[in-house]
């Protein structure tokens, strides 16, 4: 554990909680892509199956359980409790174009051809592109609420901090995981355009194009 990793995890947690609170307080999921949230629920589920097979640390277990719980709670709020406010017409990204190639890639390029390892690899690849339906939705409607931009900023910051974490681990532990690093770079790059707008517009809600 290093400072980049810790702040990254907390940033990730902040993003998840910001989104949950936004939906809960406003009683609305307008402007939020349910598809991205389903993809994140799939990401956490397929990655954290090792909860059942191995114990790493109390921190690790707690965070995994919280992430999975929050992901399903978010999906529940969007598709069940507040589904009347869900803007399905604008959430039109074809997720099969992500899930199918990512699944194929996970089978082809992985550390070990075993069930759990392929699911873990699938989750890493899927996470790197899971935000695309959300970004697509914002580009389609041309606007995002301020709170939604804070959510996206925290989510992007999390993966950017993980890049520094991997640089740290490479230098001080001689450790690197090429699958995680390449996917992490791809994921971070997807946020770059958004980061630029977020900083230059001072995080205000804005009309937004990609």
């Amino acid at each position: 554990m290093n400072i980049f990793r810790l702040i990254g995890d907390l940033s990730h947690l902040a993003a998840i909680i910001i989104l949950l609170l936004k939906i809960w307080k406003s009683r609305s999921c307008a402007g939020i892509s349910g598809k991205s949230q389903i993809l994140f629920a799939i990401v956490f589920t397929t990655r954290y199956l090792d909860l059942l097979t191995s114990f790493i640390s109390l921190y690790n277990t707690c965070m995994k359980v919280i992430y999975i719980g929050c992901a399903y709670a978010t999906v529940y709020l969007i598709y069940m409790k507040f589904r009347a406010t869900y803007d399905g017409n604008h959430d039109s990204f074809r997720v099969e174009f992500l899930v199918v190639p990512v699944g194929g890639l996970a089978v082809l390029i992985n550390h070990d051809f075993s069930f759990l390892e392929i699911l873990w690899t699938f989750s890493i690849y899927l996470e790197s592109v899971a935000i695309l339906p959300q970004l697509f939705m914002i580009s389609k409607t041309g606007e995002a609420e301020t709170i939604t931009t804070h959510y996206l900023f925290c989510l992007g910051l999390y993966r950017a901090l993980y890049l520094f974490n991997w640089i740290w681990r490479f230098y001080f532990e001689g450790f690197f995981d090429m699958i995680a690093i390449v996917a992490g770079v791809v994921q971070t790059v997807l946020y770059c355009d958004f980061f630029y707008l977020y900083v230059t517009k001072d995080g205000k809600g804005y009309r937004f194009s990609i």
């Binding site: 090792d50 995994k64 070990d112 390892e117 690197f176």
Partner: peptide, 10 residues
């Protein structure tokens, strides 16, 4: 290349 090495990460 470390196998399954980043499983301690989230």
């Amino acid at each position: 290349l470390a196998f399954s090495g980043s499983k301690d990460e989230l």
